[in-house]
């Protein structure tokens, strides 16, 4: 299960790279909780990071190796791979405000 949203075309990145967001969402199978987290993240990104984000969804049941290499323990886990530094959020992302704070979108958004 790999889902992209919006900016699939990396060559078309905005010139300011720090403003492009790569987000990885780790889930375990197609559970309600997984789907909730994916939907929540998509909604947040559409609203706050339009056209400057890339979401990668990783199902660790299919790819358990990834859980080890990326140090995933709790599920769902959201990792902000870009911009640095790496940030980690666990849970179904049901509280938008806290997701924004956790990802530091609140401060960065214009």
């Amino acid at each position: 299960m790999s889902e992209q949203n919006g900016s699939k075309h990396l060559p078309d990145l905005p010139s300011d790279k720090s403003e492009f967001w790569i987000l990885r969402l780790y889930v375990a199978g197609h559970t309600m909780r997984s789907l909730t987290a994916i939907a929540n993240l998509q909604a947040i990104c559409e609203e706050h990071l339009p056209d400057k984000h890339h979401i990668e969804v990783i199902d660790v049941i299919e790819d358990p190796e990834r859980a080890s290499t990326d140090q995933i323990l709790a599920l769902p886990t959201l990792i902000r791979a870009l911009p640095p530094p790496i940030r980690k959020i666990i849970g179904d992302l049901s509280n938008t405000e806290r997701v924004l704070v956790g990802l530091e979108i609140a401060q960065r958004s214009p």
Partner: peptide, 17 residues
């Protein structure tokens, strides 16, 4: 300090690993 907890989660990652 590196983890923000937002909403419900499980430790399935531990089990899977």
């Amino acid at each position: 300090s590196e983890i923000e907890e937002v909403g419900a989660y499980t430790l399935d990652g531990l089990f899977i690993r």
